[in-house]
Amino acid sequence: MLEQSILTINNLTKKFGSLTAVKDLSFTINKGNVYGILGPNGSGKSTTLGIVLNVVNKTSGDFKWFNGNTSTHNALKQVGAIIERPNFYPYMTAEQNLKLVCRIKDVDHSKIDEKLEVVGLLDRKHHKFKTYSLGMKQRLAIASALLNDPEILILDEPTNGLDPQGIHQIRQIIKDIAAGGTTILLASHLLDEVEKVCSHVVVLRKGEKLYSGRVDEMINSHGFFELKTEKKKELISILESHSNFSNLKIEGELITAFLNEPMSASDFNKMMFDKGIILSHLVKRKESLEEQFLQLTDENEINQELGKLN
Rank of each mutant, 00 (worst) to 15 (best):
K45R: 08
P150H: 01
S5M: 14
L306P: 08
E240L: 09
A187I: 05
V52A: 09
E114H: 11
G36M: 02
N11T: 10
A178K: 08
L98W: 13
R285V: 10
I219V: 14
K15Q: 15
I255S: 01
L227P: 00
L38I: 04
F27Q: 11
R139H: 07
R103T: 15
M92K: 12
L279I: 04
N87P: 03
S18W: 00
I302A: 12
A143F: 02
L282A: 11
T59K: 12
F268M: 09
N33L: 01
H127A: 14
V101N: 00
L38C: 06
G39A: 03
V56N: 00
I82Q: 15
M1W: 04
E193P: 01
P86G: 13
L306K: 15
I37W: 12
K286V: 12
A94D: 04
I167A: 09
L155H: 02
I173W: 10
M1Y: 05
L294E: 00
L155W: 02
L248E: 01
R124D: 08
E234W: 02
F258T: 11
K45M: 10
H222Q: 13
S188H: 14
G180A: 15
G50T: 02
R103V: 10
E240R: 11
L38F: 05
L279C: 00
V215P: 00
A257W: 07
S288W: 07
Q165V: 07
G32P: 09
D62M: 05
D267N: 13
L279A: 03
L239R: 09
D123G: 10
A187V: 06
K45Q: 11
T159P: 07
E301Q: 08
E157R: 04
S71V: 11
H126G: 12
A141L: 03
K232P: 09
E95M: 11
V79F: 10
T48M: 05
L121G: 11
K125W: 03
L190I: 13
M136P: 12
I174T: 08
C198H: 05
S241Y: 00
Q96F: 07
T20V: 13
R205Q: 14
L210K: 12
A187P: 11
K105R: 06
N57S: 12
H109E: 13
E217F: 01
E195S: 13
E230W: 10
L248T: 03
A265N: 08
A145F: 03
A178Q: 12
D113A: 15
S212A: 13
Q295N: 08
N300H: 13
D192W: 02
M263N: 06
M136N: 10
K58M: 09
L38R: 05
I174P: 03
R214W: 15
A21S: 15
